[in-house]
Design a protein around this nucleic acid. Structure first.
Lengths: 148, 148
DNA sequence: ATAACTGCAAACGTTTTGCCAGCAT
DNA sequence: ATGCTGGCAAAACGTTTGCAGTTAT
C-alpha cells in the first residue's frame, strides 16, 4: 500500500470487528451508571471496584473504541483532561470554574445555530460544541475555599 | 498567612508588576501578526526566527501572563493542545475536523444564550464557549489527503 | 536594590504505544 | 488459525516547575 489516507484508515476501522469482552461491558456499564462525566482515570477507579486487575491502557482503548462507535461521548472539553459521557446523545455541558465539576444542561441542542453560522465562515459546518462555565451550587456558596 | 485562598492568589497576581521584556514584546508581536491561532510550540517557532535563543518555557510563561491580563486569548479548545489568539475580543471559532486548522467565525457573540441556559441548570453561569467543527475549504475539496 | 525574568533541564500528568500471551470466533 | 484483546511497561506528548544567573526599573 503506497499511501495510507484518512479513507484507508476509515476502511480499516470498519474492518475491525470488536468483540464483546467483559472489560468493555463493565466499562460501559459503569459509565452509564454515573452522571459525573468521569475522566479515564476515574473510570478506571470505578471499574477496578469490580475488576481489580484491569489496566489503565485497557480503559483508554475501550473508551476510545466506544466513542468512535458512537456508543458514548468523548468530551474534548476545556480542561486539560478528557472526560467521557455515557449519554451519547448530543447535549450541552456546564463546567464549574472553581472545582472543575461538569454537569449536563437540560436543554435542546440549538440546531439552527449552525445554519446561522454557515454564512459567517467558509468552512462546511457539520457540528458544534457549546460549553458554559460558571459556579456550581456548592462553589457559589463558598467562593473562597481555604486550601490546607 | 494561614490559608492561601483563590482570593489571595488573585491579590498576589495583581501585586505582580510585569516588566516589558524583549521576549514578551516579540511573542505578542508575532502572535498579533498571525491569524492562525498557533499552539505554544508554533509561537516558539515564529519567535525563534527573530530570537533564536528563546526557550519554550519562556513562551509558555508569557502566553500565560498575557492571557491572564486579557491581552491575548487562550483557547482551551477541543484538541489536546492549547491555542492562542492575538485577538482578545470574544469571538467564536471553527475547527477543521481533518487538518485541525482553527479559524475565526465572523459573527457577534450570542449574549442571550447564557440567560436562556440559566434556567436549564443550577450553576451560576458567567460565560460560554461555542466552537463549530467542519471541513475547511481545502479539506472539503480533497477529503482523502494522501499521507507521505 | 529588588523583584521580575530567562534558559535549561527535570518533573509532571495524561494519553498512546509496542510487545507478547491469552482468548473468542 | 485468525485476529481482536488485555496487561504491563515504556514512550510520547504538552505543559509546568525549580533553580541559578540576568535584567529592567
Amino acid at each position: 500500500m503506497a499511501y495510507v489516507t484518512p479513507f484507508h484508515l476509515k476502511l480499516m476501522a470498519l474492518a475491525h470487528r470488536p468483540r464483546n469482552t467483559r472489560q468493555r461491558r463493565v466499562i460501559l456499564d459503569e459509565l452509564k451508571k454515573v452522571t459525573s462525566h468521569p475522566t479515564a482515570y476515574e473510570v478506571l477507579k470505578l471499574v477496578r471496584s469490580r475488576m481489580p486487575g484491569i489496566s489503565l491502557a485497557t480503559v483508554y482503548r475501550n473508551l476510545e473504541l466506544l466513542s468512535e462507535r458512537g456508543v458514548i461521548m468523548r468530551l474534548d472539553t476545556g480542561g486539560m483532561k478528557r472526560r467521557y459521557d455515557g449519554n451519547a446523545a448530543n447535549h450541552y455541558h456546564v463546567r464549574c470554574i472553581v472545582c472543575d465539576r461538569v454537569a449536563d444542561v437540560s436543554c435542546e441542542p440549538l440546531g439552527t445555530i449552525e445554519e446561522l453560522m454557515g454564512e459567517a465562515t467558509d468552512f462546511t459546518i457539520v457540528g458544534h460544541r457549546l460549553e458554559f462555565h460558571g459556579y456550581c451550587p456548592a462553589c457559589a456558596r463558598q467562593p473562597a475555599k481555604p486550601t490546607a
